[in-house]
């Protein structure tokens, strides 16, 4: 626990849901969820294909309205979203560095012509920490899938987010590249105490890096949330994934993460 965490405003969670039901056209996909997301935690959103993971995360971000209940975000919360690669319109010409620069504008800051200059060092830092410097002047669409995902990560990090939300951020990477990127993310979390919420299918990686799990299943209609160790013990998780979520777990690795109560 870092000093200064004791104030009242810091103690309130960054993000929580209250009887939140997500879905499309007023039809709920999942039962109501009550989840509290604290700073410094690394949440993995897991579940079978089509279980409502993306819908849940999009609703949590406020990209689509909830069917019922509500999401409560701490005022002034800075959220970054790293979408699946396919959601980006790559017919728009942009160099990698232009994409990263696109990550710093928030709310109405685009009205200020000097804003980009002020945050130039943030962009440089994001480019450096994600190691995309060598191809930063290439066109985004000519990069390999894994490189594109790194660029999107740099864009998400460029604005120093409180919450970093990622929809399968490493789906196009090989195992080594994926580990490398998750180490970068973990490093950022350690430094800034950000909250990470990540959709992923790669169980070994989740077991190694995540602190918390959010297990969703539309067919069997459940939402299970909590510390990863507890979630992985539940019969539902055992049924879906066996013991895959606790095999590689390296204990004690999360003590460095500030403010997260496991």
């Amino acid at each position: 626990m870092r000093s200064g965490d004791g104030t009242v405003s810091d103690a309130s969670p960054l993000l929580r849901t209250e009887e939140l039901e997500v879905g499309w056209s007023r039809h709920a996909l999942l039962p109501p969820a009550n989840v509290t997301f604290e700073k410094g935690c690394f949440w993995a959103v897991i579940g079978p294909n089509g279980s409502g993971k993306s819908t849940f995360v999009r609703t949590l971000l406020g990209l689509q309205p909830p069917v019922a209940g509500r999401r409560i975000a701490k005022p002034g919360l800075r959220v970054s979203f790293m979408p699946q690669r396919a959601d980006v319109h790559s017919r728009v010409p942009a160099r990698a560095i232009d994409v990263v620069r696109g990550g710093v504008d928030r709310h109405l800051s685009f009205l200020n012509p000097l804003y980009r200059r002020r945050v130039r060092s943030d962009v440089d830092r994001a480019i450096e920490s994600t190691q995309i410097g060598e191809f930063k002047h290439q066109q985004y669409r000519t990069l390999s899938d894994g490189q594109q995902q790194r660029v999107l990560l740099a864009r998400a990090l460029a604005s120093n987010p409180d919450v970093l939300v990622m929809d399968e951020p490493t789906s196009a990477m090989d195992v080594n590249a994926e580990r490398e990127v998750l180490r970068i993310i973990r490093h950022v979390v350690d430094d800034s105490g950000a909250l990470v919420i990540m959709i992923s299918h790669h169980l070994p990686v989740i077991a190694e890096f995540a602190t918390h799990g959010l297990l969703l299943d539309r067919v069997h209609s459940y939402v299970i949330a909590g510390p990863l160790a507890e979630v992985s013990e539940t019969p539902e998780c055992r049924h879906l994934f066996g013991s895959a979520l606790d095999t590689h777990r390296h204990t004690g690795g999360h003590s460095a993460i500030a403010g997260c109560h496991e």
Partner: peptide, 23 residues
């Protein structure tokens, strides 16, 4: 000229722009 940065962001990746709080 005034809106061009917001326009570029919205055109390139509307979901991301929305998450950043851009209208």
């Amino acid at each position: 000229l005034v809106f061009h940065r917001a326009l570029v962001l919205s055109v390139f990746d509307p979901n991301h722009a929305r998450a950043l709080g851009i209208p």
